[in-house]
């Protein structure tokens, strides 16, 4: 294909201003705040992991730029099917730190009752669906929800985020096929290293989708691509595949810094705000940890709930036995 990933943010903030930025000031500030909060949360999780208090932890920072940008570029009523690296999207869609930390540690207040691996949050109010451990299945769900929106005449979109390992799964093939067949308002956002051959965006062409190739560490480029795809999808123009190239680690590290240069240039942020906001994030995370510690671990009482709408006799019996075991 020979295309270079589209980038908007460079050392010179003026250059991004010359392109049309699809986020308003409020969204830009929220985006930068999400990245900062995600970094604090990630640092804390990494520390807990090193200390052995969290058994399973997948850093979300390397994916935070594209994750937060996609989440913020969507409408509140759009649906988001995340990968397991999308803490930033979870936070951007209104996820609470307390819930995130409780879920991380399977603590008493965990909204998911200790069922899911750390970082696999769920947020119905934010139309953010708990990821499973299967690679790529969410691609098909986004196609399904997009089809439902289309059948119901709702002007919304469904977006799935996934990595290159999902691309070789069947759901990538069937999901893209289904979305194209129905011209459903779906957006498929694939984070890649840029080294995949042939490039992922190129494969979208074969399915008959619109494709975009963007710098995945450039929040504005990702947000713009999602916003454009969203407008097209809602207008009946069908689904889009966006390849967000994450590229070199140092670029990832710098994703927030690049955005900061831009929001400062816009007059939305400064050193004073930065200091106060980072301190507030730290306080919130530490408060959440303290709350979780006070609440203690999730008990086994609900271990057998929520399998069926009503507990069938087998589970009633098993629950009774589980309870007896507790009493011994």
């Amino acid at each position: 294909m020979g295309r270079q990933p589209l980038s908007l943010l460079s050392a010179d903030p003026e250059s991004a201003e010359s392109a049309k930025v699809h986020l308003d000031d409020e969204q830009l500030r929220a985006l930068y705040e999400t990245l900062t909060l995600t970094r604090v949360v990630d640092d804390t999780c990494a520390r807990l992991h090193r200390d052995g208090r969290v058994g399973f932890f997948v850093p979300s920072l390397p994916a935070a730029a594209s994750s937060a940008a996609a989440a913020i570029a969507l409408d509140d009523d759009d649906w988001l099917f995340p990968s397991f690296r999308d803490a930033a999207a979870y936070l951007a869609r209104g996820g609470r730190i307390d819930d995130f930390v409780a879920q991380l540690l399977a603590a008493a207040g965990d909204p998911l009752k200790g069922r899911q691996l750390p970082g696999h949050g769920s947020l119905p109010a934010g139309k953010f669906v708990a990821p499973s451990g299967a690679a790529g299945t969410q691609i098909q769900h986004a196609a399904g929800v997009a089809l439902a929106m289309q059948l119901r005449g709702e002007a919304q979109v469904a977006l799935a985020i996934f990595g290159p390992s999902a691309v070789v799964q069947g759901a990538f093939h069937t999901g893209l096929n289904a979305a194209v067949q129905h011209q459903a308002p779906a957006i498929f956002l694939c984070r890649t290293s840029g080294a995949e051959a042939p490039p992922i965006a190129q494969r979208g062409v074969g399915y008959g989708l619109e494709t975009e190739l963007v710098d995945g560490t450039d929040c504005l480029a990702v947000a713009n691509a999602v916003a454009v795809a969203r407008t097209r999808a809602v207008a009946g123009g069908g689904p889009t595949l966006i390849e967000a190239v994450a590229g070199a680690a140092e670029l990832e590290q710098d994703a927030a810094g690049r955005l900061r240069g831009f929001v400062e240039h816009r007059g939305l942020w400064d050193a004073e705000r930065e200091e106060a906001f980072v301190r507030r994030c730290l306080d919130r995370v530490l408060d959440a940890l303290e709350a979780v510690e006070n609440a203690g671990p999730m008990g086994p009482e609900s271990l057998l709930d929520d399998v069926w709408a009503e507990q069938p006799w087998m589970l009633e019996e098993q629950a009774a036995r589980l309870k007896e075991g507790d009493d011994v």
Binding site: W79, V129, T137, I139, Q140, H141, A142, A143, G144, V145, A146, L147, A148, M149, L151, R152, A158, G170, A171, H173, T174, G175, N177, A178, Q181
Partner: peptide, 20 residues
């Protein structure tokens, strides 16, 4: 739908999630 059961069941899951 297309004759691909993974796609069929996954689409049905999406439809159901949306409330259909």
């Amino acid at each position: 739908t297309l004759a691909a059961e993974g796609g069929l069941v996954g689409t049905a899951v999406g439809l159901a999630l949306y409330g259909l």
